[in-house]
Structures are given as C-alpha cells and as structure tokens.
Design a protein around this nucleic acid. Structure first.
Lengths: 224, 224
DNA sequence: CGTATTTCTTGAACGTGTTCAGAATATAAC
DNA sequence: GTTATATTCTGAACACGTTCAAGAAATACG
C-alpha cells in the first residue's frame, strides 16, 4: 500500500496534469476539454467524473498550490525577524511558486465577480483566502505593529488586498521578466512600512476614526 | 429625412433594446443570442450583422451611456464650486444613470483582464476612460488643488481608479438599495478630501518621492 | 424601366463546455 | 467462484456563441 496509488487517483492526477499542460501551452480560454481528455487518454466524460467543470480543474490546481505554499510560508515566518521580512516571505513565496504558471493564474484573477467560483473573492476560494489572511495576521502580530484600534483589526485583510493587487498587476505585466511588478513591489512595500510607521501620529486622529468606520462598512464590525 | 430613421438603424436599435431587455431580465451570462434575436424578431445572423459579438452589444450600451453621461457631467462641472461638489457630480451622475442597469454593469466590470474588451482596462474602453479621466482632471484643476509635483500629474487617474472601485463595490453590493456603497462613498470621499488637504505637510516629504516613483511605474512617466 | 450592385437577412452548421444513459471494470458478499 | 453492488469510464447529444454561404430586399445605374 505504500507505493500504490489508487487507480482512480492516478487517473485524476493524469487529467489534472494533462489539463495544466494544455493550459500552459494554449492558455485557459483556448484549451478545450476534448484536448485535455485526449491528452490524459480518457473520454471527455471521465474528465467530468473527476472535475465538475473546466473551472474546477483550475481550482484543483489552486488548492494544490496553496497546499504547498502555505506550509512554506509558515516555515518562512518562523525564521523572519522583521515585519518587512515577514511580508516578503508571504509575497515572494507566492511569486516564486506561481511564476511557471503565471499565465494560468489569469484564469483565477481575471474575474472579480464574487459569484464566480474562480474569483479571488468567491465562496469557493474563501478558505484559501482565510489561510492567507491568517498568515498576514501572524506577520503583523509577531512584529508587534502598533496601530490605532479602529484600524488594527483590519490590517491583515488590507495586507491581503495589497498582495492581491500586486499579484494582479504581475499577472498582466508584459514587461521583461515582469520587472515593472518587481519595481512596484519594492516601492509599495517601502511605502507601506513608512505609512505604518507614521500612521499613529496625532495629525491622523481624524483619519483613524473615518478609516475605521469605512473599513467596518467594507468588512463588517471587527470581531477580534 | 428629419423624421425617418434609416431602416437598418431601426433594426439595430431593436436588437439592442431586445438585448438589454433580456440582459436585465436574465442577466448577461444567462441571456442567449437566440433569445435576443427572437425578441427583436430577426434571425441570429442579423444580430451578428449589427454586432460583432454578445460582448459588443454591452459595449454599444456602454458607449451610448457614456454619450449621455459625459455631457451631463460636463454641464454639472460648470455649476459645481468646490472639489467635493465636482467629484460628487461625476460619481453621482454615473450612479444615477447606471442604477436601472446595475446588474448589466457586472458584464462590464467582472472581467479585469485588459485583453478582454469589456474590461474597464481594455483598449476598447480606452476612449471612454480617457473622457472620464479628463473630467476628473477638470474637477481637480478648476478647484486649484495643491499637491506635490511628484504626485499631482497622476491625481486624475487615481481619482478615476477610486471611482471605478466604488462602482465595482456597488455592482456587487447586495445590501438594500446598495446602502453599504452609499455609506462607503460618503466616508471615502470625506477621507479623500481630508487626505488631499494634509498631503502637502512636511512629514510626507519622503512619501511624496516614493509615491511619485511608484506611480511612474504604474502609469509611465508623466507627460503633462 | 431593367439590371447590377450593395445592403440586409436567413438558418443550417461548427466548435465549445457540459450532461447523461448506459457500458465496462473493480470491489464486496456469500 | 459467482453474483451483486459500487466505481469508473464512454461517447453521443444538448445548448451555447459564432460563422457563413446563400438568398431577399433595397438602392444605384444607364
């Protein structure tokens, strides 16, 4: 039993791999289920036996990716000392892991309708999102960031949003080696840390209140 | 010639209206071209004679909407005195005009891939976008907003982004009468004006430089 | 007027994602 | 080992957006 992978698991894997190969070669949109099935040497119906839809195959990829990335991120956070280092661990682990599949990622980011299962804001991606937010929360907490209590509860989710924006820019970045994204990353990260540092200053008192109210509208009343 | 609409124009209009009716009733995705065609009492082929694709019908709606909204906005800007009033003119004209078609708007906002013609970032929507940005530029210029030169050239585009975010939130806002969006709108607008007011302060000197560089990465070197 | 040309319209047909009744195969029960 | 059940797999069929060859209607031309 140690070596043997159950036959059906093997088939499922073959379909997933065949799909990823076609996705990488032709892009998600242009890939056809018939092509995927024939690549995996099964009938189309078999692909639908293992995956509910074409989207679901991408979802399976995403879940597998998260399964690899999340432990890597958690391990990275164990080592990192500063907030900057911790944020870099999260963002760069993602860039690194997704790099070979950057274009496939477009299927996961192109649609922002929360009803669409592949949307970064969907129900279907909620648990992955929450894992990520938890990593950001850990990064922030362990760094002992001081922020006004009106805003602090939302910080992890805001950082998740920042990271999502970065990934989005990256996915559609046509510059060589996505150098524009790397520039943007360095500058926004620096600016972010700068902002967190001065955010507690007295001039911002009126801003804090408003920001808190506003975040409450978007995310709901903070529970923690 | 004064009264008479050319026959083909009449047909095109009938198809567009039939399409909008179906879109409003069943949503963009679930609407079928056969349904639209039969609603307009033509064959499917006729719909494709007037519109390149299902997407193109939504595009025609968007262009017509812009044709109505842009002059209304420009007229509103003539009257408005303060920056706040001017920004309100732009945002609220859009909300008002799009309200009956809020769900249809999802077809225009759900996809953010710039390659997708319906995306708010696409080539196809560029001219509409530029008209909007020009309105924001006018609102800012005429209000005599003072901002550090590193950031000022990007302000109109940033405001366009703000407005787009607001519309996006609105499209997917399920609260009664989209009250959450209205709350968000009021609070973010207030915060925006507050931020512009204090942005020139000395503490922000290091932020200005970074922000300018960062915006340069996103938008390219300012030409004006 | 007649006919040539352009404009408009038709509906069958294509490739797509997806479904499903049933066949094939594996597993369980005795 | 044989039968019953559960699992896996097949491929024809469906509805969809879209295309296109062919026809109908309008317009231009002489």
């Amino acid at each position: 039993m140690t070596e043997k992978v159950k036959k059906s698991e093997e088939t499922r894997g073959r379909i997933l791999e065949a799909a990823l190969a076609v996705f990488r070669e032709r892009g998600f949109e242009k890939a056809t289920m018939r092509e995927i099935a024939s690549g995996a040497e099964v009938a189309v119906g078999a692909a639908y036996y293992y995956f509910d839809s074409k989207d679901a195959i991408v979802m399976a990829f995403y879940e597998r990716a998260q399964g690899t990335m999340h432990p890597a991120i958690e391990a990275g956070l164990d080592e990192a000392k500063t907030l900057e280092a911790r944020l870099r661990v999260i963002v760069e682990t993602k860039f690194q892991y997704f790099a070979p599949n950057r274009k496939l990622l477009a299927a996961l980011t192109s649609n922002i309708d929360p009803e669409n299962s592949l949307s970064p804001f969907s129900e279907a991606t909620a648990s992955i999102r929450e894992q990520d937010v938890a990593s950001f929360e850990r990064a922030v907490t362990e760094s002992g960031v001081k922020l006004p209590p009106a805003v602090r509860p939302y910080l992890a989710r805001l950082l998740w949003m920042y990271q999502m924006g970065l990934i989005l820019f990256w996915v559609y970045d046509k510059s060589d080696g996505q150098s524009r994204t790397m520039l943007l990353y360095e500058k926004t990260l620096k600016m972010l840390l700068m902002t967190l540092k001065i955010a507690g200053l007295a001039i911002f008192r009126p801003v804090h209140k408003l920001a808190g109210e506003l975040l409450d509208v978007v995310y709901g009343t903070p529970t923690s």
